[in-house]
Design a protein around this nucleic acid. Structure first.
Length: 376
DNA sequence: ATCATTTGACCTCG
DNA sequence: CGAGGTCAAATGAT
């Protein structure tokens, strides 16, 4: 599968995910809902077309996909305009509305990043990206948890990641990566539950932050103990938008290869990034992980989306420090979800969602691994 | 019994 | 010395 198609798949999944998050509000907006559904269907149809036409001998395939993507962008403009109109006229007054705006804004950012700036009514500030200060403040010394400066030293350049449309900013400093992102808080139920991101975290602290209304919670990877996984994250509710979490990820997950992982587990992304695959056989090697055959895998699709993999592109599992080889550098946008997926599947703990069970329960038995391997 | 969360104390840096 | 980050004992949940 070529990178464009993979990117398109990811894009479609992201659309579906955003639709899922915005559903409580969009359910009352059938026109918008319809457009969103159409868009999702169309994206995957394009993927399917691309797969069918993705023959080595097809010299026009690239051009065709480019044309499709251009059409897609044109269509995004239309949908973006629809949502903008709805945003201008629709529920932004209630608390739920605030969350809805957050979600919809994200959706709009994705649907049409170019349109975001147009929706400038004070609340609409474009992609919600904020660069924070020093990554680690001060590097702690030897006591306690793993430090986050494990990545190879690099320039201190700050770069906006590929995923800026997903409202996150990846910052690289001398001391390592820090990914800051904002995600909508739960719109119902316990609002204190931090957003699920496919990883299992253990809370180890909470602290009142000066000048902030809400405390900051500190989490580390559940597998830190056994795998010395240095990944950590901080979750804090925004002062000006209590229905949004600001999640700061630090460190990279090194717990991909657990002893309980299947023998055919995905390689560590930093070791062997998910390569562009061009044959069906190669793609099938990842069949248990990726819903390539979307039309007939509704359950997988649904569960996969529920894991919020794409909401967290680059978050937590970012292991880009060592990903200097070509594929990783060129196509991080689909390397990272795979890494996240693998980690989510192989490292899901009891306290997190039952993503593993959901996924495997929906799979054909031929795709299941031995039951003894499914959990820690 | 095991694991996760809470929370006050402690540590380091600026 | 204050703020942010972490530790670790106490507590709760399963």
């Amino acid at each position: 599968m070529e990178e464009n198609l993979v990117a398109l798949v990811l894009y479609g999944c992201k659309l579906a995910k955003d639709l899922e998050q915005s559903l409580p509000v969009l359910a009352n907006q059938p026109d918008i809902l319809s457009l969103s559904c159409e868009e999702i269907v169309r994206v995957f149809s394009n993927v399917k077309d691309g797969l069918n036409s993705n023959q080595p001998s097809n010299l026009n395939s690239n051009l065709r996909r480019e044309q499709q993507q251009q059409q897609q962008l044109d269509h995004e403009d239309q949908i973006g305009a629809e949502i903008q109109e709805w945003l201008r006229t629709g529920g932004t007054t209630t608390a739920t509305g605030v969350a809805a705006v957050t979600n919809t804004r994200e959706a709009l950012d994705l649907l049409n990043p170019r349109a975001t700036a147009i929706v400038g009514d004070g609340r609409m500030k474009g992609p919600m990206v904020r660069e924070l200060g020093d990554v680690n403040g001060r590097g702690r010394n030897s006591k306690g948890g793993a430090r986050v400066g494990d990545d190879a030293p690099d320039s201190s350049r700050t770069r906006k990641s590929y995923a800026s449309n997903f409202n996150e900013l990846m910052i690289r400093r001398d001391e390592g990566y820090k990914t800051v992102k904002r995600v909508a808080a739960p719109q119902m139920g316990n609002l204190d539950i931090p957003p699920e991101d496919g990883y299992t975290w253990r809370k180890y602290g909470q602290k009142e932050i000066l000048g902030s209304t809400y405390p900051r919670s500190y989490y580390r990877c559940t597998h830190q103990k056994f795998y010395e996984c240095p990944a950590k994250k901080q979750v804090q509710r925004l002062d000006d938008d209590p229905f949004t979490f600001e999640v700061t990820y630090r460190g990279s997950h090194t717990c991909h290869m657990s002893s309980t992982a299947p023998s055919a587990a995905l390689p560590l992304p930093e070791q062997q990034p998910f390569p562009p695959r061009t044959t069906a056989a190669a793609a099938n090697a990842y069949a248990p992980l990726l819903p390539y055959s979307l039309p007939n895998t509704n359950n997988i699709h649904h569960n996969w989306l529920s894991m919020q993999i794409f909401q967290d592109l680059g978050g937590g599992g970012v292991a880009a420090a060592g990903s200097s080889d070509g594929a990783a550098a060129r196509f991080p946008e689909y390397q990272l979800p795979v890494a996240d997926m693998a980690d989510a599947m192989f490292n899901s703990g009891s306290s997190s969602s039952n993503s593993m069970d959901l996924i495997f329960s929906s799979m054909d038995d031929n795709h299941k691994w031995d039951s003894e391997e499914k959990k820690d």
